[in-house]
């Protein structure tokens, strides 16, 4: 996952005073998670790039309203996700999440993670297919929560829904997956 700069609050304060270099450091730190969040929602690389870029510019303009001491990442992802949702409403090709080519056949050299040992290549493909078949709102919640590692609070902020809604969508999605996965 994306590492946080050690002096994030200092960077935010400097950016709030108009320091664009400080803001560039924040963009650098969060561009990965912002782009992927936008991609999970928009499922189109061009839309995701545009949404993330517009999100960062809008966040810059709104920095004066950012409450000092509050976590920056959920605030930023909410803005980016909103931009991505606006683009989903427009027509365009939407890609399904896919496995990396190398991940389909794990190499014998690399030590697999404990989690990766849980699944064979076939099981991974089956599970991903089941995720891709979920209703969109459930798939998005699961993707943000487990694939990108966002907290429930961050998912709720990103999707602009109460945390309880995230919990219930997650529970329903897991239940459906269990049915098809077991």
């Amino acid at each position: 996952m994306v590492g946080r700069p050690l002096d994030e609050s200092d960077l935010i304060e400097r950016a709030q005073r108009g320091d664009t270099h400080a803001y560039e450091e924040l963009v650098h730190a969060y561009q990965g998670i912002a782009f992927r969040t936008a991609y999970v929602i928009a499922r189109n690389a061009a839309d995701a790039e545009e949404a993330a870029q517009d999100g960062f510019v809008k966040a810059w303009r709104a920095l004066g309203r950012f409450r000092r001491g509050a976590p920056f990442r959920p605030w930023l992802l909410q803005i980016v996700a909103n931009e991505a949702r606006n683009r989903v409403r427009s027509a365009g090709r939407r890609a399904s999440l896919a496995l990396r080519a190398a991940a389909e056949e794990p190499s014998g050299d690399a030590a697999p993670s404990p989690e990766a040992m849980l699944l064979s290549a076939e099981q991974r493909e089956g599970l991903l297919a089941a995720v891709n078949e979920l209703p969109e709102e459930q798939r998005t919640v699961l993707s943000l929560r487990y694939f990108l590692g966002l907290s429930e609070h961050e998912v709720a902020e990103a999707l602009d829904v109460p945390q309880g809604t995230v919990k219930s969508r997650t529970a329903r999605a897991l239940e459906r997956l269990r049915e098809s996965y077991d």
């Binding site: 690389a45 995701a48 989690e115 849980l118 599970l127 995720v131 487990y146």
Partner: peptide, 18 residues
């Protein structure tokens, strides 16, 4: 298993947003 799957997904490379 879902967390593990997340590490195996193909995401487009992150563009230079900075």
């Amino acid at each position: 298993a879902l967390v593990a799957l997340g590490g195996e997904l193909e995401f487009p490379p992150t563009p230079d947003l900075v």
